[in-house]
Simulated scan of single mutants.
Amino acid sequence: MDSQIELEFKKSKSGDKDERYEAYQNILKVTDQKVDWAYDVWDQLLEDLTHKDNHQRSRAAQYLANLAISDSEMRIMKDFPKLWEVTYDEKFVTARHSLQSIWKVGIAGTLQKEMVMEYMVERFKKGTDEKNYTLIRNDILQNMKNLYNYFNEESIKQTALDLIATVEDEKYQKKYRNIFK
C-alpha cells in the first residue's frame, strides 16, 4: 500500500470532520477498482466493524464492501456475516449506509453475488418487524437494481419483482416497482 493511501486511512479516523469526509471519499473512489493492498487493511476493517464510534463502523463496512472486488482469497465469504451485522446497527444511519453499500460485495463474483442475494431476500421477507423496514426494503431493492444493472441478469430483476409482489401495501408496492422502471 502506498503512503498516500495509508495517509487517507489515517485521515479517515482523524478529528477533523472535513478531512475525514475527504479521506472517506478518496478511499471509496480508489476502491471502486481492484487494489493490491486490500489485505493490508482487511483485518483492521473487520475489527472496526464493532468500533465504539458508529462512523468508524459505517466506514469500515463500506470500505470492506468495496474491497470485495480485490479479495482474491475470497475472505469475504467467511467474513460477510460480520459485515452484514452492521446493517442491523443500533444507529440507523450506520445500518443504512452499510446496507446501501452491500451490493458491491456481489460484484466480486458469482458466489459473492449469490450470497448477497440470499441474505437480502431473507431480510426482505423476514424483516417486517424491524423499525423502518420499508426503508430497509427500499435499500435492498435498490441493491438488487444495482446488481441487475451491473450483471444484466434477468434472474436478479425477477427475484426483486417477486419480492415486490408479496408487499401488501399498494403504496409501497408501487414505490418499490418504480425502482425497476
Score class of each variant (00 low, 15 high):
27 I>Q: 02
27 I>V: 03
27 I>R: 04
28 L>N: 13
28 L>Y: 03
29 K>E: 14
30 V>D: 04
30 V>Q: 11
31 T>R: 00
31 T>A: 01
32 D>M: 07
32 D>Y: 07
32 D>H: 13
32 D>V: 00
33 Q>D: 14
33 Q>I: 04
33 Q>C: 07
33 Q>N: 13
33 Q>V: 04
35 V>L: 00
36 D>K: 12
37 W>E: 03
37 W>L: 01
37 W>F: 15
38 A>I: 06
38 A>V: 10
38 A>E: 12
39 Y>T: 08
39 Y>V: 04
40 D>H: 10
40 D>K: 12
40 D>V: 08
41 V>W: 01
41 V>R: 10
42 W>I: 05
42 W>L: 01
42 W>G: 03
42 W>V: 04
42 W>Q: 02
42 W>T: 06
43 D>H: 09
43 D>Q: 12
43 D>A: 08
43 D>W: 00
44 Q>N: 12
45 L>S: 02
45 L>V: 06
46 L>C: 10
47 E>M: 03
48 D>L: 01
48 D>E: 15
48 D>F: 02
48 D>T: 05
48 D>M: 04
49 L>M: 11
49 L>W: 05
49 L>Q: 08
49 L>K: 09
50 T>Q: 12
51 H>M: 00
51 H>F: 10
51 H>C: 06
51 H>R: 07
51 H>D: 15
52 K>A: 07
52 K>D: 13
53 D>F: 07
53 D>L: 09
54 N>Y: 15
54 N>F: 14
54 N>W: 15
54 N>S: 14
54 N>G: 06
55 H>S: 13
55 H>L: 12
55 H>Y: 14
56 Q>N: 10
56 Q>T: 15
57 R>K: 14
57 R>P: 11
57 R>D: 01
57 R>S: 03
57 R>N: 07
57 R>E: 02
58 S>A: 13
58 S>V: 01
59 R>A: 08
59 R>M: 06
59 R>N: 15
59 R>H: 12
59 R>I: 04
60 A>P: 14
60 A>H: 10
60 A>M: 05
61 A>S: 15
61 A>H: 01
61 A>T: 10
61 A>R: 01
61 A>G: 14
62 Q>V: 08
62 Q>W: 01
63 Y>Q: 03
64 L>P: 13
64 L>Y: 05
64 L>H: 05
64 L>M: 10
64 L>E: 03
65 A>I: 00
65 A>E: 09
65 A>P: 13
65 A>C: 15
66 N>A: 09
66 N>Q: 11
67 L>T: 12
67 L>S: 04
67 L>V: 08
67 L>N: 08
67 L>H: 09
68 A>N: 08
68 A>R: 08
69 I>S: 01
69 I>F: 00
70 S>P: 15
70 S>G: 08
70 S>F: 07
70 S>C: 10
71 D>Q: 04
71 D>F: 06
71 D>T: 14
72 S>Q: 12
73 E>S: 11
73 E>N: 15
73 E>I: 02
73 E>K: 15
73 E>R: 15
74 M>V: 08
